[in-house]
Design a binder for these strands. Structure first.
Length: 268
DNA sequence: ATGGTAGGTACCCTA
C-alpha cells in the first residue's frame, strides 16, 4: 500500500501535475492539502478517470482544504473543525486491512502556517498554530490507543529536527522551526506513540527537505529547504514500513507547488 | 537587514 501526501497549492490549477505524480509513483491513496477549492468545484472527474474513484474532501473558497483520493474503497469518512474554526484542515478515512483486526485510520492534516512573527501576543496566527497542534495532541491522546493501527500525513508546517532545515541556527527564530513549535509537535508525536516513518529510512543526521520557498532565484542552488510534510504511523505499523519517496523532481516541473510529494510504502 | 514569489480573490489576504 502506497500512501502519498502532497501540499498541492490549488487542486484546480495543479490537478494535471497530481495526475503526473500518480502516473509516475502509483500511489494507492493520495492525500492533498491546500486544495483551495470549495467541494462543489472539486475536479473529481479527472481523478476518477485515473482510477481514484473513492474520494473524501473538505474545502472552502480561497484557502486551505484537504482531500483524500483512493484506488481502494474506504469508509468512516470524517472531518473536524479545529480550534473553533471551520477552516478545512483535518479529515480522516478508514480502510480495511488483512494484517490488522481493526481498520486502519488515515488522518490528513493541514496545520496552520502561523504567520511570520513567532510571538503569540503579537501574532494571532502563531497562537492559532500552537493551539491547533495542542488540540491535535489532546484529540489523538483521548481518541486512540498506542495499539491502534493509524497513519497521519500532511503539511504539518513544522520541521522538528536539526537536519529538517538548511540551517538549524538561522531558523531557530523562524516560524516552522522555533523551540515552542517543536515542543508542541513533539507532544503531539508522543500522544499515541507516533513513529516518524520517513526518518526510519533517512538517518536524523542527514538533511532532508520537502519544501523550498518560491522566494528564491534558484531553489536547487540555494537549497534552503525545510521538511514540513510528514508521514507518521503508530507502533503496530512500524515493522510494516517498506520504503519511502521524497519526489524532489516535482519541484522542477512547470508551475510547481512549493512542496514536493512524500510517499511511504506500508505492508497492509 | 531586507525582500524576494505564488495562488485566489477582488484590489488584499495567506503562504
Amino acid at each position: 500500500m502506497k500512501i502519498l501526501t502532497w501540499n498541492i497549492n490549488s487542486v484546480r490549477l495543479r490537478a494535471p501535475l497530481a495526475l503526473r505524480i500518480i502516473a509516475e509513483l502509483g500511489p494507492d491513496i493520495v492525500c492533498l492539502q491546500e486544495t483551495k477549492c470549495p467541494d462543489e468545484q472539486f475536479p473529481l472527474k479527472e481523478f476518477t478517470k485515473a482510477g481514484y474513484g473513492h474520494a473524501h474532501y473538505h474545502g472552502m473558497k480561497g484557502y486551505n482544504g484537504v482531500a483524500v483520493l483512493s484506488k481502494i474503497p474506504f469508509h468512516a469518512v470524517r472531518k473536524w473543525d479545529r480550534v473553533s474554526k471551520s477552516d478545512c484542515r483535518h479529515i480522516a478515512i478508514e480502510i480495511n486491512s488483512q494484517k490488522f483486526k481493526k481498520p486502519v485510520q488515515i488522518h490528513n492534516l493541514y496545520v496552520p502556517a502561523g504567520g511570520d512573527i513567532p510571538d503569540v501576543t503579537a501574532n494571532d496566527k502563531f497562537a492559532h498554530k500552537l493551539d491547533f497542534v495542542d488540540e491535535l495532541k489532546s484529540f489523538f491522546a483521548s481518541s486512540y490507543a498506542h495499539t491502534d493501527p493509524m497513519v497521519a500525513v500532511g503539511d504539518f508546517n513544522i520541521a522538528p529536527l536539526e537536519h529538517d532545515v538548511w540551517s538549524h541556527k538561522q531558523l531557530l527564530d523562524v516560524v516552522s522551526h522555533t523551540p515552542i513549535e517543536v515542543e508542541k509537535l513533539t507532544a503531539m508525536f508522543e500522544s499515541v506513540g507516533w513513529v516518524d516513518a520517513i526518518r526510519t529510512f533517512v538517518p536524523e543526521n542527514e538533511k532532508l527537505y520537502t519544501w523550498w520557498s518560491y522566494r528564491n532565484r534558484d531553489w536547487k542552488i540555494s537549497n534552503r529547504g525545510r521538511r514540513l510534510d510528514h508521514i507518521w504511523v503508530t507502533e503496530p505499523l512500524k515493522t510494516h514500513l517498506k520504503g519511502y519517496t521524497v519526489f524532489k523532481e516535482a519541484r522542477d516541473w512547470q508551475q510547481p507547488s512549493d512542496h514536493v510529494p512524500v510517499m511511504a510504502e506500508i505492508d497492509l
